[in-house]
Amino acid sequence: MLDPMTIVILAVLAFIITYMAVSAMKSRQEPLKKKVIVTQLKCSNCGYGERREFREGDYVGKEVGECPKCGGKLLVEAIYLEEVEGIPELRSAVSVPKSSQPQKNTGRY
């Protein structure tokens, strides 16, 4: 039979260990979401559109070639960051910027 003092000490130790374990679990980061920068192209003549991964040198309004349908000007319509799950045609992916990743305040200092 344990004496009361030992029980108190064990209870306090159990509380501290549980508290630290819960805090450590909370501070664990959520898995990274994959995101990719998409360049959206649009024909200025017939409205044909396509999307591809961003290439260095792309900017909104840039002429990137001829429209495969009507031969009109194919322009960069938009450039934005999008989650990869929704766009299977874009194979390579980049990670979310660190600042956009969820950060939890563990309250520990």
Partner: peptide, 23 residues
């Protein structure tokens, strides 16, 4: 500091956008 570090990270990430020239 939690907010300050987050802001600093955002600035650091922003550099990639300016280097690539994305909007």
């Amino acid at each position: 500091l939690q907010q300050v570090v987050r802001l600093a990270k955002a600035y650091d990430d922003a550099m990639d956008s300016f280097m690539k020239g994305t909007p």
